[in-house]
Design a protein around this nucleic acid. Structure first.
Length: 490
RNA sequence: GGCGGGUUGGCGGAGAGGUUACGCAGCGGAUUGCAAAUCCGUGAAGACCGGUUCGAUUCCGGUACCCGCCUCCA
């Protein structure tokens, strides 16, 4: 069996992974707060943990991995957007507007993450479906002396949990010294955090022993992971920005509520994302959602490849150059494999690299070698090598059958293919007539449209090369081809 | 201020205390009417200053610069 090693943020070291129960490996990933389209940064952990999920499924068996990723659908930003809609004239009650907003956002999220080739987790719980479990957990924390009610709030008492701060390597005293947070007067300690807070009439609320209110940010992950994975489980993941306070607080809540259990054994954190060397932010104008990129014509598989080019524990820089490179590689690989498919098993080296703390950049490097072996090796080996290459790529979620359509989607349009074929045969005629001047002009014009003519031993062929600014490629292409045909006739 | 991450060839990006990463781009060649694609070959590196060592880009210490978290942002 492949030995998986993972860098555990909790111990700050790379450890051999040994599941509590190999028959049921359990993993929890902090999912999105559903108030808007997922941006590129949201997508990184999804892709990273999708690779881990695929690897675990390969090693332990598809039916022996439980993957949970939550939707946080109770949040002040959701409330604010629903309230804004109501104030701009929508007559419906706030609860309905909130529900509509979160439903819509979850739909977007699914569509966008599907486009990246991320497998759906086995469970995608919504926070609002686990309010009773959260209340029960808060009650248990109060009963055990780790939390206290004050002015309609319930707060976690960080001084009651000596290990508070261990995950993120901070001490409560240091944090207070450097804190920039305004401290509510009812807090016993400035670092105490909210488990439950009161709701006004404009805010969604649930009945509780402390009055009508809603849960604090962190408790939903503690409650849902316990409900779906148990009080001890194997892996907990998320972005490094969640390490503090979110994950620290999850640990405090879960470990105090279930003191005999371990909560999550391995903590994995992906580093953050940058865009062209800078932090992605709305003010810098380099902020975009996954959907923005898909709409620009960048295929989800290409986005995924770009993510995998950087190791998950390093900051990743999103650049146009990487998109170009990724697109080139995937196009080439798809050409190498053609439409062939044979069942196979992944290359052991690829597995070994992934098992070594998810070294996806090294695994991609190995895939390049495998791809070269196919084209340069013994032709008799080709089917076997191709099958293994595909199986290897699929552990990374690449070269999946459903994701290849981008490579030839442009040819789905009968108008375009017909026009291209007419021009291509005209080009071949001109070449046969040795009218190279006209042939070259035609070829260059077509090239500018992203249609590249070439000669192969078996006749003429065409490649579609997506221009860098391709948001309206399909439309422009058809018009461009028509113009070109008219030009040829004149 | 506190805590954490990073710095590898023109670019992206790994591993390894001594031996080719890999890819892109470049260059030379094959092929082509010219190209493209493909194939063959090829140069190029490890921020800076010390230390350990027979030997460090790889280990240790320091400096510089970059980035993140400490604000319900993944």
């Amino acid at each position: 069996m492949v030995e998986i090693k993972l860098t555990n943020t909790r111990t700050r070291s790379k450890e051999r992974f040994a599941p509590i129960d190999p028959q049921n490996v359990r993993m929890y990933l902090c999912g999105p707060t559903v108030y808007d389209r997922a941006h590129l940064g949201n997508a990184r952990p999804v892709v990273v943990f999708d690779v881990l999920y695929r690897l675990l499924r390969h090693v332990y068996g598809n039916d022996h991995v439980t993957y949970v990723r939550n939707f946080t659908d109770v949040d002040d930003k959701i409330n604010a957007s629903a309230l804004a809609r109501q104030q701009s004239g929508d007559p419906r009650p706030l609860e309905e507007l909130i529900r509509e907003r979160t439903e819509e956002t979850i739909g977007w999220y699914h569509a966008d993450m599907d486009a990246l080739g991320a497998l759906r987790p086995g469970h995608e719980p919504r926070a609002t479906d686990y309010i009773p479990q959260m209340i029960a957990m808060i009650e248990a924390l109060i009963a055990k002396g780790h939390a206290y009610a004050a002015e309609g709030h319930v707060l976690f008492d960080v001084r009651s949990f000596p290990a508070y701060g261990r995950l993120s390597g901070r001490s409560v005293d240091d944090m207070i010294a450097g804190a920039r947070v305004e401290v509510a007067p009812f807090k016993r300690d400035p670092m105490d955090f909210v488990l439950w807070k009161p709701s006004s009439d404009e805010e969604p609320g649930w009945a509780s022993p402390w009055g009508r209110g809603r849960p604090g940010w962190h408790i939903e992950c503690s409650a849902m992971s316990a409900a779906l994975l148990g009080e001890s489980f194997d892996i907990h993941g998320g972005g490094i920005d969640l390490q503090f306070p979110h994950h620290e607080n999850e640990i405090a809540q879960s470990c105090c509520a279930h003191p005999r259990e371990d909560f999550a054994r391995v903590w994995l954190h992906n580093e953050m994302l940058q865009v062209e060397g800078k932090k992605m932010s709305k003010s810098l104008g380099n902020f975009f959602t996954v959907r923005d990129l898909l709409d620009q014509g960048i295929p989800g598989e290409v986005i995924r490849y770009v993510f995998l080019m950087t190791h998950y524990r390093k900051p990743m820089d999103w650049t146009a150059e990487k998109v170009r490179e990724a697109e080139g590689h995937l196009g080439r690989w798809r050409a190498v494999i053609g439409s062939s498919y044979l069942p196979s098993t992944p290359d052991p080296e690829v597995l070994e690299m992934l098992a070594d703390d998810l070294n996806t950049p090294a695994a991609l490097g190995r895939l390049h070698q495998l791809s070269n072996d196919i084209t340069t090796g013994d032709p008799n080996d080709r089917p076997r090598l191709t099958a293994q290459f595909i199986a290897s790529a699929r552990v990374l979620g690449l070269l999946e059958p459903g994701m290849g359509s981008w490579a030839d989607s442009i040819t789905d349009s009968p108008d375009i293919t017909a026009a291209v074929e007419r021009l291509l045969s005209l080009w071949m005629d001109l070449r046969r007539q040795k009218n190279f001047e006209r042939a070259d002009t035609l070829k260059n014009e077509a090239d500018r449209l992203g249609v590249r003519f070439r000669v192969t031993p078996s006749g003429a062929a065409v490649d579609f090369v997506r221009p860098s600014d391709s948001s309206r490629w399909g439309k422009d292409l058809l018009r461009g081809l028509a113009d070109l045909e008219a030009q040829q006739e004149s």
